[in-house]
């Protein structure tokens, strides 16, 4: 099997920052907001090039969401950035009423999602944000897997008219998707073809799924790996087609198994093609302090966990 190559570890948040900078150059309507986390969100280049199009709101996320909604009235395309926890749970009602229900073209850009935020611990590690956002009618939910994809997604969502939740992370991770990729919202990306088990992953777990598939291959198990960067709208056709072929599925995400990608996949399959499923995800728990690697290991969010889940789900076929 053809192996994917890590072209050098990079953080997905830098993909966001670089995508935003590129957008700033080509789309004069793109504006950005931040709640005192410019460095963490890698927004400084955009600010340096477009100071008049940047709004520093201070530590006031609710106000940031409202201002972003207002900026759309007048044709601006606001990208509002902060940590995932403060971009969702803290301001859920502001997003619900002023953005989603009002149909505003706001891009909520959430860094430091999941446990890989690391040492800051559970107060800052949200594992519920995909669920919160996907339940909002009209909200598009995207969780990118590496630097290149995050950059491509950042650029792509400016052309989508409607609210978007873009989720990315803090640590440097493998960068393996093509630099020149065309990002299509709602379109699954098949990374490996296989016949025995379908592995559907999102975000940081996509690289882990690739590592798992390679090891499974050595054991004679043929795994199909699908990168679901868009959790909503979900590419149901790609999921159904694959699981019809393999007969079982493992979902993998850096998120609570309640409300995440896994449940969206389960619903799709329950309606269309019921199949055994295993969930690689956190098990209704908060995170804690530690290095990203330690936390991924402790909470069962790595290639090893995906291999175990794949073997288990195969036994249930």
């Amino acid at each position: 099997m053809k192996k994917y190559t890590d072209t050098g570890k990079k953080d997905t948040r830098s993909g966001f920052g670089d995508g935003l900078t590129e957008l700033g150059r080509k789309n004069p309507n793109v504006v950005a907001l931040c709640a005192d986390l410019v460095g963490s969100l890698k927004m400084q280049d955009f600010i340096d090039e477009n100071p008049e199009r940047f709004f520093q709101v201070g530590i006031a996320e609710a106000n940031m969401i409202g201002i972003a909604a207002g900026l759309t009235i007048g044709g601006k395309i606001p990208f509002a950035g902060t940590f995932a926890n403060f971009a969702t749970g803290r301001v859920y009602d502001q997003i619900r009423q002023s953005v989603a229900y009002s149909g505003k073209n706001v891009k909520i850009c959430a860094s430091h999602s999941g446990v890989t935020l690391g040492e800051d611990g559970a107060t800052h590690q949200i594992l519920e944000d995909i669920g919160l956002m996907k339940m909002l009618p009209g909200m598009t939910v995207i969780n990118t897997c590496d630097y290149n994809q995050t950059k491509a997604a950042t650029i792509a969502i400016a052309d989508h008219d409607g609210p978007v939740y873009l989720r990315f992370g803090r640590p440097k991770v493998a960068n393996f998707t093509p630099e020149d990729q065309k990002f299509e919202i709602g379109k699954a990306v098949k990374l490996y073809g296989g016949n025995d088990v379908t592995i559907i992953a999102t975000g940081h777990l996509v690289w882990e799924a690739l590592q798992a598939a390679e090891k499974l291959s050595e054991k004679g198990i043929s795994a199909e790996v699908i990168n679901i960067h868009t959790i909503k709208p979900l590419d149901e056709d790609a999921i159904i087609k694959s699981v019809k072929k393999t007969g079982c599925v493992v979902t993998a995400e850096e998120h609570n198994f309640l409300g995440g990608l896994g449940e969206s996949v389960a619903r799709t399959l329950a309606e269309n093609n019921p199949a055994p499923q295993e969930f690689v995800a956190t098990q209704d728990t908060f995170g804690e302090s530690g290095t990203p690697e330690q936390l991924m290991d402790k909470y069962g969010l790595n290639a090893e966990a995906i291999i175990k889940a794949s073997e288990k789900v195969l036994s249930r076929k």
């Binding site: 709004f55 609710a62 106000n63 940031m64 969401i65 409202g66 201002i67 972003a68 909604a69 207002g70 900026l71 759309t72 009235i73 007048g74 044709g75 601006k76 606001p78 502001q94 002023s98």
Partner: peptide, 9 residues
Amino acid sequence: SVAIGAAEA
């Protein structure tokens, strides 16, 4: 907040 955003626009 929304009014401020519209005013900024």
